[in-house]
Design a protein around this nucleic acid. Structure first.
Length: 269
DNA sequence: ATGCACTCCTGAACGC
DNA sequence: TGCGTTCAGGAGTGCA
């Protein structure tokens, strides 16, 4: 599910529940997700007070007063649900606050991860160290121009490369390319400055719109309070093969390195 | 360095 | 109804 807008939606929902609150009970119901859970997870977090909840790329970051930060990644099917029972087959980790709120980490496919890491050395975590720029809040044009120069790979492959831009996934890469009127299979190094500029504007625009809509709900994403994201109703091309793009032309699908890309060949060149 | 295929796991959707 | 096949929003790893 979760790309940057979905993780941002989750982080914003967790903030009022967790910030400044004490974790009264943390229970791991299995030893691993994608990787083994950190040693003594429950013990290390129980009794800690949450200082802040933030996001880096597609990672959620929960800082505690014990000098450690809990990182989480939702993988493809991960969800964090508020006040769910937490006894389902795929409910893997439970967090309970002193106020009696319960946060349940659910992940059927178990591609997600959780880790604890010293807060003052967070940037050294192996999964965070190589991440590229956040796509919101900065001017992406010079960054993309530098990253695309001389590259033979399709532009969509580079948009998905988290070392360049951190947080864009398959859905929003397709959507941003449509807004920028650039085909996903164009070679990155061959993009003209005007096309790079359009892409640099389209990426934050589509991410901001998705955040405002509460993310996209496909199979798995819901906001922690259970309400559905609505941005899937605003998709121009993603998942809409054979339907009309917003300009009325048929959307096509192509496979790039084993993953679906959706595009409008009339709008995108 | 660069590009790409494969892999982890489960569930939903589709075809017969 | 039931079974098999295909596909899915991520991303690390290892290969050419």
């Amino acid at each position: 599910m979760p790309e940057l807008p979905e993780v941002e939606t989750v982080v914003r929902a967790l903030r009022p529940v967790l910030e400044g609150r004490r974790l009264a009970r943390v229970v791991a119901r299995r030893p691993d997700l994608r990787w083994p859970l950190p040693q003594g997870l429950g013990q290390r977090l129980t009794g800690a007070t949450v200082l802040g909840v933030a996001r880096r790329a597609k990672y959620g970051l929960i800082a505690t007063d014990r000098g450690e930060t809990l990182l989480f990644h939702l993988g493809m099917s991960g969800r964090l649900r508020l006040d769910a029972p937490g006894d389902g087959a795929h409910d893997h980790v439970l967090f309970e606050t002193g106020e009696g709120r319960r946060i349940v980490f659910t992940d059927p496919r178990r591609f997600g991860m959780l880790d604890l890491w010293p807060s003052d050395r967070l940037g050294e975590h192996r999964l965070l160290a190589a991440l590229g720029a956040e796509p919101l809040g900065a001017d992406l044009r010079p960054l993309l121009a530098r990253a695309f120069a001389g590259r033979v790979a399709p532009v969509k492959a580079l948009l998905l490369d988290q070392r360049i831009l951190a947080g864009v996934g398959n859905i929003y890469a397709c959507e941003a390319l449509w807004r920028a009127r650039v085909r996903p299979d164009r070679l990155a190094g061959a993009l003209k400055p005007a096309e790079i500029a359009r892409l640099a504007a389209a990426i934050p625009a589509v991410l901001d719109a998705a955040i405002a809509a509460g993310g996209s709900s496909l199979r798995d994403h819901v906001q922690p309070d259970g309400t559905l994201g609505m941005f899937q109703h605003s998709w121009a091309v993603y998942g809409r093969q054979g339907e009309a793009c917003p300009k009325g032309h048929p959307v096509e699908r192509l496979i790039q390195s084993g993953r679906s890309s959706f595009l409008c060949p009339r709008c995108q060149r």
